[in-house]
Every structure is written in structure tokens, then in C-alpha cells.
Simulated scan of single mutants.
Amino acid sequence: MIDQPMTPSPVAKLFKAKRLAMNLTQEELASKVSEGLNPPDRLSQQSYAAYERGKSQTSRHMMQIATVLGLSWDEVSRIMFAELMEPPPPPPHNGIEADHEGQPEAHIEDEYFVARLLEQHDLPNEPGRTEIRERSKTDIRFSSSKLRQIGVSPANVICVTVYGNSMEPALPHGCVVGVDKARSIVQDGEIYALIHNDHLRVRLLYRLPSGGIRLRSYNREEHPDEEYSPQQIREQRVIIIGRVFWHSAYR
């Protein structure tokens, strides 16, 4: 069962604070955003309200909302990236309990932790549009000690579901990859998970001399290389989550 997030994202909280500071109602803000869109595209008050409340964690009009509120996309993207970098909340106890004689008793389970999972979901009544949700209750468990042996901090681990056949045969559709959020600086030829216009993607990345990036698939016959300039990275809301260190491939 998928947990539906209901807490507003940090960006949504920022938008609300700026909106209130500008004395704009949700309806007025949605109307101003819609004025800058190409018909029939529009932002309804109901859609914006759902985003501001946290019922929806993303909005395809985030860049236009930021513009109306006088915010730069660089500022918004930094907040989005910082949110991804937040470690999971600590467990309710430290893993040590007292036995019947009052002596501390360690548990083997404390060597393992359950990883969070990012999933992509289609938006109802909006073909081709998606949003990304986080599922905290999963069956994906990692050994903390083994992660440290390969230089990965448990606090920086998040898992991502692979969609499509672009990374076949190594990473088929539906498999899950483990991502180290601390390693988001591109090293040529490594596999990374990223967010691209509210879509989850897993690709080989390469740096370009212009400061942009090249995305490469294993299945290059169907998915040729893609190159993005720094400006396109900002406009298309490309955020590198981190480097892939583990995968669970299955058919």
C-alpha cells in the first residue's frame, strides 16, 4: 500500500509564504500564472490549493508560479535538492533496550535499516503528466556495516524505481536501484538517478565542456543520447539525486 504524502513540500511552504506576503489569494495567484500559459493550459485554484496543502507533492507549473512570486528557479531548485538530501527521521528508540535485569540488550536487527523509495505516479486526467511520491514503508533493507565498507552513509541512501526499457538489459523496467545522495557530482560513465520534469530517470551521465550533461542509455537503439545545456537543465528542472551503488534486477 502506498502512503499518500499530506505534508506540504518545502517549496510549497515557500510559495505560500511569498503569496501571503504579496497579499494574493490562491485564486489570484492561479489566475496570474494562467495568464502566462499557452491556452488551453491553465492552473486552477483547486490544483494550486492541492499543491500548497501537500495533497500533491509536485506541480508542472512550478516555474511559472515561482516567476509570478518573484522567485528565481535557481532558488527553488536549491530547496528541492536540499529536500532530497534530508536524511530519514531517526528511529523512535536507539535500538538498545533493557533486559529483565536492567542491562542493555543489543539487537541484531539494528545493523539493518529500511530504505525509503521514490516512485513515479501518473496524474489522473492529465495524460503524460506525473508526480513523484516517497514511500517510507518498504521491504528494502540494507546492512549499515556493509554500506560503510563501500563508503556509503546510511543517512544518504534512497531507492528509486526504474521505468521503461532504456537501461535494459542491465536495469529492466520495474527494478529498484539504491542511490547515494552524497554523490551527485557527475563522474563520466557512472549511473545516476535524476528527476527530469517530474519524471524519475536512471541514466549514465557525462559532463559536457559547456557545463551541461549528456544522458546515455544502455538501450541506445531505442533511446539515443540526450544533451542538455545549463539553461535547459534549469528550464526542464533536472535534479541529480545521486549515484547508483546497488540494483535489484529481476524479470
Rank of each mutant, 00 (worst) to 15 (best):
I2H: 15
I2N: 15
D3L: 04
Q4T: 14
Q4P: 01
Q4V: 11
M6W: 00
M6S: 13
T7P: 03
S9D: 05
P10L: 11
P10S: 12
A12I: 14
L14Y: 04
K16L: 07
A17N: 06
A17W: 01
K18W: 11
R19I: 08
A21H: 06
A21C: 06
M22S: 07
L24M: 15
Q26A: 13
Q26L: 06
E27A: 12
E27S: 09
E28W: 10
L29G: 05
A30P: 08
K32C: 04
L37W: 10
L43K: 01
Q45R: 15
Y48N: 10
Q57Y: 00
T58H: 02
I65N: 01
T67S: 07
L69Q: 04
L71N: 07
E75L: 08
F81G: 00
E83K: 04
E83R: 05
L84A: 04
H93K: 08
N94Y: 05
E97F: 13
E97V: 13
A98T: 07
G102K: 11
G102Y: 06
E109Q: 06
R116G: 14
L118W: 14
L118N: 12
L123S: 02
L123F: 03
P124Q: 09
P127W: 08
G128C: 04
I132F: 00
E134P: 01
R135P: 00
S136V: 12
S136W: 10
T138M: 01
D139Y: 02
I140C: 00
R141W: 08
S143L: 06
Q149F: 01
G151L: 06
G151M: 05
A155L: 10
I158F: 02
N165A: 15
E168M: 15
P169A: 09
L171T: 05
P172V: 11
H173A: 13
C175Q: 01
R183V: 12
S184Q: 05
Y192I: 09
N197Q: 15
D198Y: 03
L200Y: 13
R201N: 10
L204C: 03
L205E: 03
Y206W: 15
R207L: 05
S210K: 08
R214E: 15
R214I: 10
R214Q: 15
R216I: 03
R216V: 12
R216A: 09
S217Q: 03
N219P: 01
R220Q: 15
R220F: 01
E222L: 03
H223F: 15
E227F: 05
R237Y: 00
V238W: 02
I239F: 06
I241S: 09
Y250K: 12
Y250A: 13
